[in-house]
Design a protein around this nucleic acid. Sequence first.
DNA 1: TTGCCACGTTCGACAATGCTAAACGCCATC
DNA 2: GATGGCGTTTAGCATTGTCGAACGTGGCAA
Lengths: 254, 254
Amino acid sequence: MAKNIQSLERAAAMLRLLAGGERRLGLSDIASALGLAKATAHGILRTLQHEGFVEQDPGSGRYQLGAELLRLGTTYLDVHELRARALVWTDDLARSSGEAVYLGVLHQHGVLIVHHVFRPDDSRQVLEVGAMQPLHSTALGKVLAATDPVAHAELVDAKREPFTSRTISDLDDVERILELTRAQGYAVDNEETLDGVASVAAPIYDRRRMAVGSVGITGAVERVCRDGELRAELIAAVRDTARSVSRDLGAKPF
Amino acid sequence: MAKNIQSLERAAAMLRLLAGGERRLGLSDIASALGLAKATAHGILRTLQHEGFVEQDPGSGRYQLGAELLRLGTTYLDVHELRARALVWTDDLARSSGEAVYLGVLHQHGVLIVHHVFRPDDSRQVLEVGAMQPLHSTALGKVLAATDPVAHAELVDAKREPFTSRTISDLDDVERILELTRAQGYAVDNEETLDGVASVAAPIYDRRRMAVGSVGITGAVERVCRDGELRAELIAAVRDTARSVSRDLGAKPF
DNA sequence: TTGCCACGTTCGACAATGCTAAACGCCATC
DNA sequence: GATGGCGTTTAGCATTGTCGAACGTGGCAA
């Protein structure tokens, strides 16, 4: 593999460090965390600040992420073809199912939410676009791991942290679930990520029949489940939506 | 001014170029647009791709923005203190006014929307968080230009493009409006940005009495105006919200 | 108040680093 | 099957970013 640009890698590591730490970080913290000389870290931070990728608190001198990232991140959504095609169908799915709809793509070691339609009631909900979900416990993640080889490799390598008592962590168990997912064309998360919350998701394919994302709904078990299983009509609605989006992307339905 | 890191500046320019162009760009396009050798551009792009900031279309080889930007941009929102404090109050404002609420901060030459509450009806609306608005024609922008010296300087230097027949472009006229804005503590956009759309906004101050953002509502003139002027109760509601957020940030109310 | 420490910042010299130009392999097109 | 354009790789040079140390400043404690 050809070598990458050192200063850029360091800058990216800084941005990720700032994104991870809850609070603003000082120059010394950043320099020591990355094993750099203070002057080196400062040079990178100064440039990042000048470009708007980080901001510096005038009082404390500490650094945090900058507004330009928000602007560019939003632009990413605008360009995202899968998201654009899915917009129409996800609204209908939210209306017909009465639940929140999520659209996710593989990113690094998890599922990045690129679209989120609120559950159609008047409750207060927070937008989760841009958030990450784990591959092994969520319906969106299982679908990706079952249909995308890259996602599958990520899942195997990942830690598979148990979130609830029902989280499936053992690799053999996970592989069996993925086999089932491939066979039936959808995946379920029955209180494996959050207690009391279940979800269903189905894969979206592009014109080359490659999985490019997954779409699903999430809701309280009391609403989306019956007798401990996800309601069949919700599964059908999710799969219909996934098929519609896939067709919009150019995938042949047969 | 100390010199910034060249490769980082070039990388940032590439990201902005990719954000500006509607479609994916090829390596040659990028290299020539920035005046770089192809190999130089390729090295930067390869690193950006490895870090997730750009993605390459496998078929065409063209480049586009990457998902990591969305993740980091969303994290910026999570850390944003002004936005966090404003969350509670903007919901109430949307409910009491019946209109969409926007929260903006100065970024580069315009207003960056960091929060957006949909108009509380069941109509389909697109989230505008991360989008930019001009300083000279919008209520959010006028408020910032009137209260933040940096924003004012940006407004003076900007082109002040006319969007509708009512857009105020002449600098003297703008300055008069800003004077009025300072005097009355709020600004209005009466079909100056979009035909048929009007808005009101008021400034938000931090504990040092510095303007850090503006909050306002936007809606169809038929609803938010009466006799060609913005309804007084809406102005009062917006100003109340701005004061509440300011107080939350530590600003003394007197 | 005074001393001290820790912080962000600047400086200057070195060599490692990233840049340039040219050549390569690939694919689509004619 | 030649051709042009594309993204990619290579090799060598000097520009560029890095480093260690010194500077200035602010806050804290004695």
